[in-house]
Structure formats: C-alpha cells, structure tokens
Design a protein around this nucleic acid. Structure first.
Lengths: 100, 100
DNA sequence: ATGATATATCAATATAGATTGATATATTTA
DNA sequence: TAAATATATCAATCTATATTGATATATCAT
C-alpha cells in the first residue's frame, strides 16, 4: 500500500492533517519518531529506551507504521523500525498549509 | 499570563509539543484556527460556519485561548476571536525541531 | 526437538476528552 | 425594567484510545 492510499484521498486536506496530528500527538509515539531520527532501532531498543512495556511499544509502532510514518525490516529475531522521512515531510507540509 | 507561562517551562520541548499537538489535533479546533486566518470572527460566525452548537464552540475556543493560540476582544454583546500568530509560530517551531 | 529470545496480537480495563443539555451572565434594545 | 441576543459554564454522558495482562508466533541456539 503506498502513501497515496494511506492518505485516504477521499478526505480533504484538513481531515488528513487531523489524522496525522492525532497519531503524532501521543507522547510515546512522538518520542519514538524522535528516537528513530538518529538511526533505525529494534523494538527491544525502543521499549528499553522509553521504559515502556514491550506490547505497548509494539502497539504504537503499529499505529505509526499503518499510517506510513515508519517502516520495518526483519533481521533474525529482531525487527528494526526506521523513519519514512518522505512521508513525514508530506504530511508535515499539509499541516503548514493549514496553520503556518 | 504570557506565553512563557503557558508554555509550561518546567516541561521539556517534547512535552510542550505534545500539548500543542493535542490541542490542534481536534478537527473542529483546527477548523477554527483555519477560519480565523482570514480575519477575526465573533463566536456566532464561528459556530454558524462550523455548523456546531454554540456551547461546544465556546468550549473549543476556551481550549485554544487557554493555550495562547487565539485571543479575544469584546465588542458590545459579541466576542471576537483572533489568531495569536506569533505564539502559533513558536509552538510550530518546536514541532519542526522534533520531527522535521 | 527443546528452550530462550524477540515481537505481535487480542480482549479487557482505564482514562481522557468531545459532546450534549440545561442554565447562568452580560449587553443591548424597547 | 423587561425581553432579546450573545456568550460562557457546568454536570452528565458518550466515545475514542491508551494501557494492561495473557497468550501466540517466529527465530535462534543447544
């Protein structure tokens, strides 16, 4: 599924922006995005860094991934998550068109 | 109360940004901010534009005002709300430092 | 194959916050 | 003063979603 689909084309810019904002306005998710800026990280590194239970982090990662803000790759038993900078920029740009 | 107080200096940048995002990630509030970009508006114009009950709009306006994103001035029986562009820019800048 | 490690999923609960309905306050007009 | 208009407040309810606990799945090592 590409960004165009995830963006829910049927929705207007404001609706898309609200969805984006709702996703990044959760402290733990925002921290995750922040943490991933440096480099990709495995789930265990993330939940240890955030001091959160593993399943909770897993849930937040799913939310971020479903909306296309992060991607993942598997390596052995670990799963590494990384930012999808381009998509983040795109959503961010929508926001600037509304409030900046 | 100035912005420095509302920003809750005790909180870190991430915490402040989350607060800001939570406030603007509500569709009606984002619409209000959007609507006020053109010019200041009285409450009645806002709730008619958004097609929302008056008390609900009043509540959202309070949230926006308490956080310093909008200001108000009274004129007769009407109250006009306007953007506080400078504050919005400030909070927006915090966000760019985290995810952009 | 068995155990250990890493991650994901699911149901249940908790919690924050949006919405509604009723009412209060303040200003203007008659 | 009384009625009308504009806005604000408060308690109750509804709704979305964060969190927790338990369990499943997948991979690696012995």
């Amino acid at each position: 599924m590409d960004l165009a689909c995830r963006k829910k084309k049927s929705k207007d810019i404001l609706g898309q922006t609200v969805d984006f904002l709702k996703i990044i306005s959760e402290a733990n998710r925002l921290k995750i995005l922040c943490f991933l800026r440096q480099q990709e990280q495995c789930v265990c590194a993330i939940w240890q860094f955030l001091a959160l239970p593993q399943n909770l982090v897993s849930h937040h990662l799913k939310v971020l991934k479903d909306y296309g803000l992060i991607g993942s790759r598997k390596e052995g038993t670990k799963v590494f998550y990384f930012l999808k900078q381009k998509n983040i920029k795109t959503f961010f740009h929508l926001l600037t068109r509304i409030i900046n």
